[in-house]
Amino acid sequence: MKVLVAVKRVIDYNVKIRVKPDHSDVDLTNVKMAMNPFCEIAVEEAVRLKEKGIASEVVVATVGPKAAQEQLRTALALGADRAIHVQTDERVESLGAAKALAKIVEEEQPELVVLGKQAIDTDNNQTGQMLAALTGRPQGTFASVVEAQDGKLLVTREIDGGLQTLELTLPAIVTADLRLNEPRYAKLPDIMKAKKKPLDVKTPEELGVDVASTLTLVKVEPPAERQGGVKVSSVDELVDKLKNEAKVIS
């Protein structure tokens, strides 16, 4: 089966972000960018399906600025076969991304689409569900195990109370949770090879979609700073403070 993976370029998860002094947004100048960690997991899952002979082709797609091609190349180095870049400088929110991805699904007709469960910049956790709704396909979100079986897909999901297993008809949409797999690192020869793999560039206009958001970012503020407190020197002192100073235990 053909597998489509959606990846997003975001700030590297190790970077501590700063809010711009004018509170218009976070400051991304000279900040290290990377593939969203959940997308790395999504790519890994698709590549493993290919290695197992279940997937015939892995196509990776992103919606975003020119620079997002770096993340497509990373995905190609990790084992994807070709890439599609929907290039735009708009601030694309989940609905816009889902609309563009729905067009790609229409063109490519993948049997399975794998996305990350959440982009760590907006922390939205929406795109996969939206794509499923727009394409009329079933969804298996927050997946920790995915198995293809008798033309169906068994997806184990991480839910609040524990784990849930669903059976989905194919074609289907899956969003990856942290424990779906442990992504590999790209090896140097693969990074070199990835430069020669096909990367198709399209615009939202060519796809006939409007990716602009109806949400306005009014302002962005730093969170209330939490003051570090004191170090206590013993368990006795800790118990005393909790009882008599913080009064949270009796």
Partner: peptide
């Protein structure tokens, strides 16, 4: 996990943004 699973579908089908 339940609300996050279903509300984006509602938003997409009504062609509106979802606010998380």
């Amino acid at each position: 996990t339940n609300g996050k699973n279903v509300l984006p579908r509602v938003a997409a089908l009504k062609d509106v943004a979802q606010i998380s």
